[in-house]
Design a protein around this nucleic acid. Structure first.
Lengths: 158, 158
DNA sequence: TATTGTTATACTCTATAACTATA
DNA sequence: TATAGTTATAGAGTATAACAATA
């Protein structure tokens, strides 16, 4: 009997890798959340939603936002409501489907998001300045490979 | 489905990298949270707290837990309370300081955590199975470099 | 019947700050 | 005074499920 092989192995490399990645992501994420709150009184999900809309001037449907943000529809409703109250996004009727509508940035939302995105970019660049351009690229590729495999194996069971 | 697609066009590589890393982390994290909830009715913070204690059989003080988990003291109290109710951890008085105590796993907590950690490890190994051992190591090193730099620059401003 | 989106509910986590007890 | 930990508060995000309107 191989007792060594039976029990849970101490720390496979994948686990160490995950813990490091999770910690680092949480560290950066926490900084971003804090700054978004302190500078603009907003949150990461709201920023994310606006970021989705920024590249779609015509707007996005709720279910599309839900899919892209990986959260359920009810949650998107809440986040959107908040942004509507702040005058940063608006709901626009959709021709030919009276159930749906498009959510899009208002002029004010677009302007504010430009400022936020600009700062956000600075924070992120600072967070990774310990890497050379080559290393940034290598990291990007490696993560892409993980993501791709993850995506593929999710499809297999679908 | 893909938050990575959100940035604007003139993104530096660092931003693309961050979005990919954030998306991937959230993807894996969401799976872990869902499984922890479905299989054991628990949460990631509770799992994290138990994981911290598992490495320290004698237990950890609240402020030490707070530091390691990167959350404030009040939150640790809440999470600990819940685990105490479930009979998975216990508070033990500290000799020589009646303000403090050690939090440590109960026998039941230790046993349950072993099961959870075992499964958790499987999920993580599966998440990274798209990488070769060499690539896992490379990713680990790159993230370590980012983390180290992050840590160093935090010290500079302290 | 299925889809779009909202509402209702309950829970968890979070930060902040005031508080108690002890050092 | 400072530290260890708790309590109180308010806010946000989440999943789930029931619901209305429309397709």
């Amino acid at each position: 009997m191989d007792m060594e092989a039976r029990g849970h192995s101490e720390h496979p490399e994948a686990l160490r890798l995950w813990l490091r990645m999770l910690t680092l992501t949480q560290l950066i994420e926490k900084q971003v959340r804090t700054q978004l709150r302190e500078l603009w009184g907003t949150t990461l999900p709201r920023f994310d939603l606006m970021a989705q809309l920024e590249r779609k001037p015509e707007g996005l449907k709720m279910n599309e936002l839900s899919r892209r943000m990986m959260v359920t529809g009810g949650n998107v409703t809440g986040i959107t409501d908040q942004l509507v109250v702040e005058g940063l996004v608006e709901r626009v009727p959709v021709e030919g489907d009276r159930r749906a509508f498009l959510v899009r940035l208002t002029a004010r939302g677009r302007s504010l998001f430009a400022d936020m995105a600009n700062q956000h970019e600075n924070w992120i660049v600072a967070a990774f300045e310990g890497l050379s351009p080559t290393e940034v690229e290598a990291l990007h590729l490696l993560l892409g490979k993980v993501k791709q495999h993850h995506h593929d194996s999710a499809l297999e069971t679908a």
